[in-house]
């Protein structure tokens, strides 16, 4: 356990330069805006005095190095500045208020992906080369190639408009989560299905499986107790990487389903040129992603005793 802790600390340390770079990049974003970001946000009718006043309030009149230090100070204190559109709104408060909805959606999407991919992947892997394997492979490629902004509206059309089974949009109860979660999780389900399949194929050819077969274990016991257990280890690592894709994909899914999460907030902020809000959203998503990868790495070590020792 202590070596695990040591390893975690090492990974944490390795994440420091990455976090530094991410914060710096996000800080710099507002400075790549062509023209004057404050004037952009206030619109053409704002007077010069209003622009200068707001700039002073936001600290955008300071030299770049000071702004950078102030930004870091803010990040450390948990202060991501104020909204450019409604200066009374604190960015972090807004972001945190939307955070649970996005996390809920991303985790539900992950659940959908896992629940679909494991049975399909095992089935395809066990019947390698059969028509069922080929069908699953083609469906998986289809799933990878179907973007959320096509799948989502089509799902709304079928399940909400035609069949009247599920609500179109919003977040007012568990039934509202179904379509967004499936839309978000479908592509990941397809990717994981392919991974589980090749994992199962590889494990079923391993020596320990031959031993288990020789001992007379039943095929389902071999698959589920032995092959799958080892076969899922690489799948777990990919889940951490893919969690970031889910978080980013949530931006599109939330737009389609009017899901009141971070993605919706990001797009609204982009449209109203509320740059500090956009920075806050992007920073939060990126940091969540880094954290998810750290946790996955930890889970991976816990699962695989070969690496643990």
């Amino acid at each position: 356990m202590s070596s695990l802790l040591l390893h975690f600390c090492k990974r944490l340390l390795l994440a420091v330069p990455v976090v530094w770079a991410v914060v710096t990049l996000v800080f710099l974003l507002i400075h790549i805006v062509p023209g004057d970001p404050v004037r952009n946000a206030l619109g053409e009718n704002a007077t010069e005095a209003q622009v200068i006043e707001l700039k002073r309030k936001l600290g955008l009149d300071l030299p770049l190095s000071r702004q950078y230090l102030e930004y870091w100070g803010g990040v450390v204190r948990g202060d991501l500045g104020a909204s450019l559109v409604n200066p009374a709104d604190r960015v972090l408060e807004k972001v945190l208020a939307r955070y649970p909805a996005t996390l809920e959606l991303a985790l539900a999407g992950l659940m959908v992906a896992i629940l679909i991919s494991i049975p399909l992947g095992v089935l395809a892997g066990r019947r390698r080369g059969s028509w069922i394997d080929n069908t699953i492979s083609v469906v998986a490629l289809l799933g990878i190639s179907t973007p959320g902004f096509v799948l989502g509206p089509l799902a709304i059309y079928l399940f909400s408009i035609k069949l009247d089974l599920l609500p179109v949009s919003g977040r007012y109860g568990p039934e509202y989560l179904v379509l967004p979660a499936v839309t978000l999780g479908a592509a990941l389900a397809a990717i994981l299905t392919r991974m589980v399949r090749s994992s199962v194929i590889e494990e079923l050819g391993a020596d320990y499986v031959r031993t288990a077969r020789a001992k007379g274990l039943s095929e389902s016991r071999i698959v589920f107790r032995h092959a799958l257990r080892n076969g899922l280890i690489p799948v777990v690592t990919i889940i951490g990487l893919q969690f970031g894709v889910l978080l980013a994909g949530a931006i599109i899914t939330e737009t389609i389903f009017s899901w009141p999460g971070l993605g919706r907030l990001t797009i609204d902020a982009i449209n109203s040129r509320d740059y500090p809000m956009v920075q806050g959203c992007i920073l939060t998503i990126a940091l969540t992603y880094i954290l998810a990868n750290l946790l996955t790495d930890l889970a991976y070590r816990l699962l695989d005793p070969r690496i643990r020792s």
């Binding site: 974003l29 790549i32 990126a286 880094i290």
Partner: peptide, 20 residues
């Protein structure tokens, strides 16, 4: 690692959001 630590589409959204 820095570029991989952004979910790729997020970085694209960020750049386009600020560049216009």
């Amino acid at each position: 690692n820095v570029f991989l630590s952004f979910p790729s589409i997020l970085l694209a959204i960020a750049m386009v959001a600020f560049l216009g």
